[in-house]
Deep mutational scan, measured.
Amino acid sequence: GLTEEQKQEIREAFDLFDTDGSGTIDAKELKVAMRALGFEPKKEEIKKMISEIDKDGSGTIDFEEFLTMMTA
């Protein structure tokens, strides 16, 4: 499992990506986040990433899903 410290770091990354503070990361926010990390993702790639992570089919990534992605 994760230490509380690791969870906190992932939470901070999540909050950075969640620019509108909605508690979820949408495609637009993910794209901005990827760019910040030096990637140039295409729209299809973003969609694919979200569909792989987005277990509940909401079209957005919540913290639990993000946590799973970061620790996979």
Rank of each mutant, 00 (worst) to 15 (best):
F39D: 01
I50C: 06
F63M: 03
T3Q: 03
T71K: 09
A33D: 00
K43C: 15
L37H: 03
I61S: 00
E44N: 07
S22F: 03
A27Q: 05
L37D: 01
E5V: 09
E45D: 12
M69N: 01
F63K: 01
K42D: 14
G59Q: 05
I25Y: 01
K48I: 09
K48L: 07
G57I: 07
R11C: 05
F39N: 02
L67A: 03
K31N: 10
F17N: 03
F17T: 03
L16N: 06
Q6D: 06
F17L: 10
F63I: 05
G59F: 08
S51C: 11
F14C: 02
D15K: 13
L30P: 00
S58P: 03
L2M: 08
A72K: 13
S51E: 13
E4V: 09
V32G: 14
I25N: 00
E64A: 10
T71Q: 10
E52A: 12
M70K: 01
T24R: 09
T19Y: 13
S22V: 03
K47M: 14
K31Q: 14
T71C: 13
A72Q: 10
L2W: 11
E5R: 12
A72F: 14
D62P: 03
L37Q: 02
F17Y: 10
I50T: 03
D18T: 05
L67C: 04
T19L: 09
L16P: 01
K48D: 06
G23A: 03
L2E: 03
A27T: 11
V32N: 15
I25C: 04
A36W: 14
M49F: 07
G1Q: 10
F39I: 07
I46N: 01
A72Y: 14
S58T: 10
S51Y: 06
E45R: 07
K47E: 15
E4L: 10
E64W: 13
E52G: 08
A36T: 07
D18L: 04
T24H: 07
S22R: 05
G21M: 05
D56H: 09
I25K: 00
E65K: 13
D26Q: 08
R11Y: 03
D62R: 11
A27V: 14
G57K: 06
A36F: 13
G21D: 05
L37C: 15
Q6C: 14
M49W: 09
D26H: 06
L30T: 01
T3A: 05
E4I: 09
E52D: 10
D56A: 07
E52T: 09
L2Q: 03
R35V: 06
D54P: 03
R11K: 07
E4A: 12
L30C: 05
S58E: 05
D26Y: 09
D20F: 05
T24W: 11
T68C: 10
D54G: 11
D20N: 09
I50H: 02
T3R: 05
M69Y: 15
D56W: 09
I10Q: 02
T71P: 02
K47A: 14
G23P: 01
D15N: 15
K47H: 10
Q8R: 11
T60W: 06
T71E: 07
K48S: 07
G59D: 06
A36P: 01
R35L: 09
R35K: 11
G23V: 01
L16W: 10
T24E: 06
I46E: 03
K48F: 05
R35F: 05
K47W: 09
D20M: 05
A72C: 15
K42R: 10
P41T: 12
D26V: 02
I25L: 14
D54A: 09
T24K: 07
S51L: 07
T71D: 03
A13E: 02
K42Y: 08
R35Y: 08
G21K: 13
G1E: 09
K47I: 13
G1N: 08
S22D: 09
K42H: 11
E52H: 12
E4Q: 11
A27E: 08
